[in-house]
Design a protein around this nucleic acid. Structure first.
Lengths: 121, 121
DNA sequence: CCCGATATATCCGTCACGGATGTATCCCGG
DNA sequence: CCGGGATACATCCGTGACGGATATATCGGG
C-alpha cells in the first residue's frame, strides 16, 4: 500500500533496470535473484543485471514506493535467504505509463520508417 | 565519420535523450534547438530537453560516433548561429536496435496483460 | 565433503542528466 | 529605430543511477 498514492508521472521516464524489474514482477512476486534471471531470460541474454544494479535498484524502488517487500511464502523447500518483492499500485501505474510512452516512441519510429512493420511472432 | 564502425550493441541500451535525438534526426539533418523543439512536440510536451541535456548529449554522441556535424546548408535566411547534425550509419543502426529492444519490451508487456491492445490511432 | 550455483549486501568510480547561468543573435511590434 | 522575447549555443556542477568488484553465506548434487 502506497501512502496517498503520488503521481506516477513524476517518476517517468523509468530506467531500463526499473522497467524490467517491474515487468518481471507483473506475473507475481519474486525474489531478487529470480528477477535478475528472468530479465536475462526475457531479453534473450542481452541485459544482465549485476548485483550492484539489482539491489541498488530494488532499494531505490522501495524508497520511491514502486515495490515493497512481501511476506515470505511458506512453500516447502523455500530458500531462507530469499527476500520477496511485489509491485505496489504506484509501481503498476508507473509501469503502464512507461510502456505507453515506449509504445508511442515505437509508433513514431514506424511512421518515420526507421523500423519495419510490427513483428509477426 | 566514425572510425572503423564499431558494434552498435555495445552502445545499448540508449538513453531516452539519445534515442529521441536520433529519432528527430531520422527525417533529416537538424540543428540543436530544432531537435529539442521536435522532441518536445512528438512526446506531446512530456519530455523537455534543457540545454544541459541537449548539448551534453550531442557532444557525447559525436564522441561515440552516433552523429556528426553536417555542413551548413546555404538556405536563404538561415540563422548563422545554427549548427546542423546528421546521424551516422552507426547512429542509424544503434537506433534501429534500440527500437527493436523497446518493441520486444512492449510485446512482453502485452503478453503479460499489463498493457491493452495496440493503440488504434 | 567439495564446489559451483544461488542469494544478498555494500562500496565506490564513472558517467548521464538537467537546472542554472551566460552570451549573443534574430525578428517582430510599436 | 529600438526594446524584448524567442531563438541558439555553450559551460558549470550538483545529484543520482549504473555496474563491476568484493564479501559472505547457504543450497544441492556428485
Amino acid at each position: 500500500m502506497s501512502r496517498r498514492d503520488p503521481d506516477p508521472s513524476s517518476l517517468l521516464p523509468l530506467t531500463p533496470a526499473v522497467t524490467h524489474i517491474l515487468l518481471a514482477l507483473a506475473t507475481g512476486d519474486a525474489h531478487g535473484y529470480a528477477i535478475a534471471k528472468e530479465v536475462e531470460e526475457l531479453t534473450e541474454g542481452q541485459i544482465r543485471m549485476g548485483p550492484g544494479t539489482l539491489y541498488g535498484s530494488i532499494g531505490r524502488m522501495i524508497d520511491a514506493g514502486l515495490i515493497e517487500e512481501s511476506p515470505r511464502r511458506p512453500r516447502s523447500g523455500d530458500d531462507e535467504r530469499r527476500r520477496y518483492y511485489r509491485a505496489t499500485l504506484l509501481g503498476r501505474r508507473a509501469l503502464e505509463r512507461e510502456l505507453r510512452r515506449l509504445e508511442r516512441v515505437v509508433a513514431v519510429a514506424r511512421a518515420r520508417r526507421v523500423l519495419g512493420r510490427p513483428e509477426p511472432a
